[in-house]
Design a protein around this nucleic acid. Structure first.
Lengths: 337, 337
DNA sequence: ATGAAAGCGCTAACAT
DNA sequence: ATGTTAGCGCTTTCAT
């Protein structure tokens, strides 16, 4: 551990600590002074202590980043991108995940505060959390919320599931499907997806199959849910599934049952795992640009960081694309099977 | 931003700052004192400033964590697990990925030093890097290396690819394959895999097909490589592929070529992406326990952190399992096809 | 242009 | 048992 301080440098260069500090911070000094100080720094291998700097400057150059327990590739893609972007500006990420360690999001935000982070990037686990909102608001640092509508007082970036699912549902409806099941957890922004689902039915002048929409089902065991669904008397002819796990569960179940996609069941995946295009048949997917989400988070964040005046919070939505591949077809009536 | 300091608390409670500090740190004090201080703290909503604490205590409770690519499932699984474990002990992760931001690993480690992290968890991009090693050694803080044999002076956790690939190769050899291609990047611990590959051939009294082993090929474009390989006159009858990307490339190419797995080509994947079991046919995989890797990293790290005396560095290897699924079969002679 | 000195908020001796 | 005080390493007035 380096024990060399600015004092040592000052002594070595035979100047005052104040002068060394000036050189360090690029303030105007004489050429001679700068030379002496630089020489001493090189000589001693001095590295400034960021703790001490942070203390005086009242800024740590650290950003608190909180992601939930869900093992969602989206979060990591965003973390990576944000990290890349912020490192460029000299910031570092203090990362914490809110799972499996018995600490709540509020606890972690409190810890971020104690560590005097310069800002916060938060992907909350739940849609609304008064305690968390209050905690964030009274902190008052630049904050971006990812994926939830916590409160309009913060900037946030969302995927526009509502219209995405609407498009996907309409596509299936147009193909002739009527009994479409939406398999997504109720929690979180699930309601947006359900809204899109209902909207598509409404627009087609149809009633959505209430028994196939959450919150009907969805335990943690996706495979089990899918199995029950497919085995029921009035089984759906198409599935819209959220996320890798449920998709995998559905696909596995179908293989076990020797059901064919898309002949026996059409499938649309919400989210585009790498392998959706590899699978046989390739899975039709509602995808969005992870890179763009990440870019927006980083931009929104940096813009707040740079304005001195409170910037107006913005809610940004990232649109989705329905990527047509081979997992959807006109439904075959059960009797014909 | 909280502007309340220990002084304010002392004044409010009408005690000295020293006494407040004692209460904060759980040192023995009278019940009455503690009550007064706690009351004042609650009253004021005081939160200790960790920067100031760190400065005096000479310990930040922050751990520097450096990975080449946080969005890689292996790394983020480890990071998440390590984070869970370390949060329990009051630590936080300072995370940095060394890609796409123009900063070298040495730069980032230097930044970690300046920020006075209490320890380092590093997944180096390359097998050996004298500069990095020196930088880590002179830091002298608890350090765990993930996935590379940087230097025996640090503790490290590895996946035992050598024997894993040997087992996988032997399995294919026993099935009757002779022209097996090992598709893995040369860089990094690739040599261990190649060693395993050669060892299996040697043990069977056979010569490995030199033209099918890296460093023969492997550009960044896996699909292209696979295509060239399959189109060549003396194409392999089996593939051992490293990682999601290459596997996906291989599978896609095969679908395009209308080749069947395992009839036309057997495939073993090194690493077990979630979908390997979902794919049709399910992919035989050389897998290891990511959780265990993470657990070992955390344990190795904490044990160093807790010993005052330098602990002897340990090299831990995590063994692999060959999970037999449906992607391998006895080779069919080309002519018969 | 440079130096001296006062803190930043806290902990840890040392006094009392 | 509690209070006083000297720093931790740095930045930033304020003098010179």
């Amino acid at each position: 551990m380096t024990r060399i301080t600015i004092k040592d440098v000052a002594r070595e260069a035979k100047v005052s600590v104040g002068s060394v500090s000036k050189v360090l911070n690029g303030l105007p000094v004489s050429v001679r002074l700068k030379q002496k100080v630089d020489a001493a720094i090189g000589q001693l291998g001095y590295e400034p202590n960021r703790l001490a700097q942070s203390m005086r400057r009242r800024s740590t150059g650290a950003i608190g980043c909180l992601v939930p327990d869900i093992s969602n590739p989206l979060y990591w893609a965003v973390v990576k991108k944000v990290d890349d972007r912020l490192q460029r500006d000299g910031y570092m990420l203090l990362l914490a995940s809110s799972s499996d360690n018995g600490r709540t999001e509020v606890d972690i935000v409190a810890e971020f505060k104690r560590r005097r982070v310069d800002g916060l990037i938060i992907a909350p686990g739940r849609e609304t959390d008064a305690h968390l909102i209050k905690s964030l608001e009274q902190f008052g640092a630049p904050t971006v919320i990812l994926g939830r509508s916590l409160s309009k007082t913060f900037s946030s970036v969302h995927v526009d599931y509502r219209s995405g699912v609407e498009v996907a549902t309409k596509y299936l409806l147009d193909l002739g499907h009527r009994r479409i099941a939406l398999l997504a957890p109720l929690a979180g922004p699930g309601h947006a997806r359900v809204e899109g689902f209902r909207a598509a039915y409404a627009q087609a002048g149809l009633d959505p199959p209430e028994d196939l929409v959450p919150p009907r089902t969805m335990s943690l065991d996706a495979e089990h849910d899918v199995r029950r669904l497919l085995d029921s008397a009035d089984a759906p002819t198409a599935l819209i599934v959220l996320g890798t796990r449920i998709l995998a569960g559905a696909l596995k179940t179908m293989r076990d049952r020797n059901l064919d996609t898309p002949r026996d069941l059409s499938i649309i995946s919400i989210g585009d795992p790498e392998w959706a295009a590899v699978h046989n048949p390739p899975i039709t997917t509602l995808r969005w640009d992870v890179e763009e989400v990440a870019r927006l988070v980083a931009e929104l964040f940096l813009s707040q960081l740079k304005k001195k005046s409170k910037h107006e919070p913005q809610q940004v939505f990232v649109s989705t694309d329905l990527v047509l591949r081979g997992s959807c077809a006109t439904p075959v009536r059960r009797a014909e099977k």
